[in-house]
């Protein structure tokens, strides 16, 4: 057992183990969603969008950028390149569920395209083989491929 004060190993996470990270933001997270904690689509299905759900700005969204403000603007602007919900939350420092709600709002007005991955497809053997082949092509730190020995 660890003695509770073992020196940090090389793989130690830099973050605090639990609880809020950093000081509380000045604006309560769900203020930007008018207090809503679930988007309309989620309420209908009872399931939250997975964190890897891809968000992409639509041409309508990009055209509307000048009229959008604050978080909505930032999300559409960031999603000119496809991004996952988790990436948007991290990059814009928003709560995951705030991103879910705002993404749903933006989707409902046609400014954002929301792509929920189909788990039947992501678990399909052909997809998994492509991931495996792609990973094998990654060299290790010394530039050696996995299958080269």
């Amino acid at each position: 057992m660890a003695d509770g004060q073992s020196p940090h190993g090389p793989g130690e996470e830099p973050l605090a183990p639990a609880g809020p990270v950093g000081p509380a933001p000045a604006v309560r997270p769900f203020l930007v969603t008018a207090g809503r904690v679930a988007g309309a689509g989620e309420a209908a299905s009872g399931r939250a969008m997975p964190v890897e759900t891809q968000l992409v700005a639509t041409t309508e969204g990009i055209d509307a950028l000048g009229r959008l403000s604050f978080e909505q603007h930032d999300i559409v602007a960031a999603c000119r390149v496809p991004q996952s919900i988790a990436e948007i939350a991290a990059r814009l420092r928003l709560h995951l569920n705030v991103v879910r709600v705002l993404a749903e709002d933006l989707r409902s007005v046609g400014q954002l395209s929301v792509h929920v991955p189909d788990s039947g497809v992501t678990h399909d053997a052909s997809v998994l083989r492509r991931v495996i082949d792609g990973l094998r092509a990654i060299p290790d730190s010394r530039g050696v491929l996995r299958d080269s020995d």
């Binding site: 299905s45 890897e52 992409v56 700005a57 309508e60 996952s84 749903e104 395209s113 792509h115 997809v127």
Partner: peptide
């Protein structure tokens, strides 16, 4: 799904096709 019920035809087409995310 789950966003299909609210989908509006001809609106909201992605400008770029996103990759399939495997987690």
């Amino acid at each position: 799904t789950p966003t299909e019920p609210l989908a509006r035809p001809a609106a909201g087409q992605a400008a770029v096709r996103p990759p399939l995310p495997v987690k």
